[in-house]
Design a protein around this nucleic acid. Structure first.
Length: 189
DNA sequence: CTTAGGATCGCCT
DNA sequence: GGCGATCCTAAGC
């Protein structure tokens, strides 16, 4: 399997396309994780994106090859996971906002400190804590350990909405979710 | 159920 | 020095 076909995703496509395709894909770090139920798309020409102002030391991974990870620290507290797409140089990526906890649930419960399944991975920061996202993962390829990606089974029923927690390009409907999932960070409307 | 504020630190100006 | 692709808690309705 070539990297561009990893998990059945067209990694060279624009980030909204990839963000939609990622719904239902299983992502694991060291064998812990689950099915992606919520994503957000970002792009180098998108004012809300970290990559909008061009490459910097922090966001350099977004300008690297697709199917790699971009990890950043949010509000000094939360490590958040993005998957890079398009060709190198575009600064495009997809923020993983929520998972359905499937594999290694006990470990996720221990890391999060709550047994509430809906509270384990329902948000980018929570998910980062649950599956142990760290700065060490920044720039790593997704087709090798500690990452495991597994293609979605069948067709996912995807809903769209406004991205959360940003102040620019608020009208861009680049948030994607699995319809009816109890594990999204906030309901779609 | 909705809103408001604090925590906390690396990055950019 | 200011600010954030967030989360948690507390208080108000």
């Amino acid at each position: 399997m070539t990297q561009k076909q990893l998990a059945g995703i067209d990694w060279d496509a624009d980030s909204p396309i990839v963000a939609r395709q990622l719904i239902g894909v299983t992502v694991l770090i060291d064998g812990v994780g689950g099915r992606i139920v919520e994503t957000e798309a970002y792009d180098g020409e998108d004012p809300a994106s970290h990559s909008f102002a061009g490459p910097t030391q922090r966001n350099i991974a977004m300008f690297g090859p697709p199917a790699h990870a971009y990890v950043y620290l949010s509000h000094g507290i939360h490590w958040c996971l993005n998957l890079v797409c398009r060709e190198a140089g575009h600064g495009a990526g997809v923020l993983i906002r929520a998972l359905a906890p499937d594999v290694g649930v006990d470990q996720m419960i221990a890391r999060r400190g709550t047994p509430d399944l809906r509270n384990l991975c329902s948000g980018p920061g929570k998910l980062g804590q649950a599956i142990a996202v760290t700065r060490a993962l920044n720039g790593l390829p997704l087709d090798a350990p500690p990452f495991t990606l597994i293609a979605a089974q069948g067709t996912a029923d995807v809903v769209t909405g406004q991205r959360i927690g940003i102040s620019k390009a608020v009208d861009q409907p680049w948030r994607f979710g699995l319809a009816g999932s109890p594990y999204v960070s906030r309901p779609f409307r």
